[in-house]
Simulated assay, not measured.
Amino acid sequence: MLFRHAVLEDAPAVAALVGELLTEIVAAIGEPVFHFDMSETTERLERFMREERYVVLVASDSAGPIGFITLYESFALYAEGVFGTIPELYVRPAYRSRQVGRELLSRAKALARTRDWTRLEVTTPPLPAFDRTLTFYEREGFVISGGRKLKLAL
């Protein structure tokens, strides 16, 4: 298994994995809470990467990408400065329980330290459908910090 920083040429494969992630969430909760368009997602990812707004780490095997994690830099007074946010982490089901997600997260933590981020934050998909996701993050040292994720479409 190979773990590395994604390059622009990886954008279509990572976008496809994003589609798988969103499809899995929608199927589990039974609500169409995401809009996914492959072309738009690929273009958006390429732009974020070119502008250095997004860091993407990819896990691959001989067949190609099997998982990824994305990070971006955030700022907040409550977080005592600059911190990282993990908007997406996904590993194809056939590769789960093989430590792929754990290794991606480990590399994200290492990157966060090199950037002097005060913390990493992540929001899980809806519970209880994704209790295993919450357990994974807790096992990796994350603690529940309260609240719920809210959004306002503009």
Score class of each variant (00 low, 15 high):
Leu22His: 09
Val122Cys: 09
Pro93Arg: 03
Arg148Gln: 03
Ser39Leu: 04
Gly101His: 01
Phe130Ser: 12
Arg113Gly: 10
Ile25His: 10
Glu103Ile: 08
Val100Asp: 00
Gly64Phe: 12
Pro125Glu: 07
Leu152Glu: 07
Pro93Val: 02
Ala108Ser: 04
Leu2Ser: 06
Leu120Gln: 10
Ile25Gln: 06
Phe83Cys: 07
Glu51Gln: 14
Leu17Met: 05
Val18Ala: 03
Gly146Phe: 05
Arg47Met: 07
Val26Arg: 07
Pro87Ser: 10
Glu51Gly: 03
Glu103Cys: 02
Ala76Cys: 03
Arg98Phe: 01
Glu52Gly: 13
Arg113Ile: 05
Glu20Cys: 13
Arg47Cys: 02
Ala129Tyr: 14
Lys149Asn: 06
Phe48Arg: 15
Glu103Leu: 03
Glu51Asp: 13
Gly30Met: 03
Leu45Pro: 08
Arg102Glu: 10
Ser60Arg: 12
Pro125Met: 09
Glu121Thr: 15
Asp61Ile: 09
Arg92Glu: 03
Leu71Ile: 08
Thr135Glu: 15
Glu9Leu: 00
Pro125Gly: 09
Met1Asn: 08
Ser106His: 05
Arg107Cys: 03
Arg102Ser: 13
Arg115Met: 11
Glu31Gln: 08
Glu88Cys: 03
Glu20Ser: 10
Tyr78Glu: 13
Ser145Ile: 09
Gly81Val: 14
Met38Phe: 04
Asp61Trp: 14
Val18Asp: 01
Glu46Asp: 01
Ala110Met: 01
Ala129Gln: 15
Lys151Glu: 15
Val55Asn: 00
Gly67Asn: 12
Tyr72Asn: 15
Ile25Ala: 05
Glu73Arg: 14
Met38Gln: 13
Glu31Leu: 06
Gly30Arg: 05
Thr41Met: 06
Leu152Tyr: 15
Val122Glu: 07
Thr85Glu: 11
Arg119Tyr: 06
Thr123Asp: 15
Arg115Trp: 12
Leu105Cys: 08
Pro32Glu: 00
Pro87Gln: 05
Glu24Ser: 09
Val100Ser: 00
Thr70Ile: 12
Ala153Ile: 13
Ser145Gln: 05
Ser97Met: 00
Ala153Thr: 15
His5Met: 04
Gly19Ala: 02
Tyr95Arg: 05
Arg115Glu: 11
Ile69Gly: 09
Arg50Val: 12
Leu134Gly: 08
Ile66Asn: 06
Leu104Gly: 04
Ser145Ala: 07
Tyr90Ile: 02
Arg96Asp: 00
Glu43Lys: 10
Ile144Tyr: 12
Ala63Ser: 14
Arg53Asp: 05
Ala13Thr: 02
Ala13Val: 02
Arg44Ile: 01
Ala59Glu: 11
Arg53Glu: 14
Lys109Ser: 01
Val91Ser: 00
Ile86Gln: 13
Trp117Phe: 14
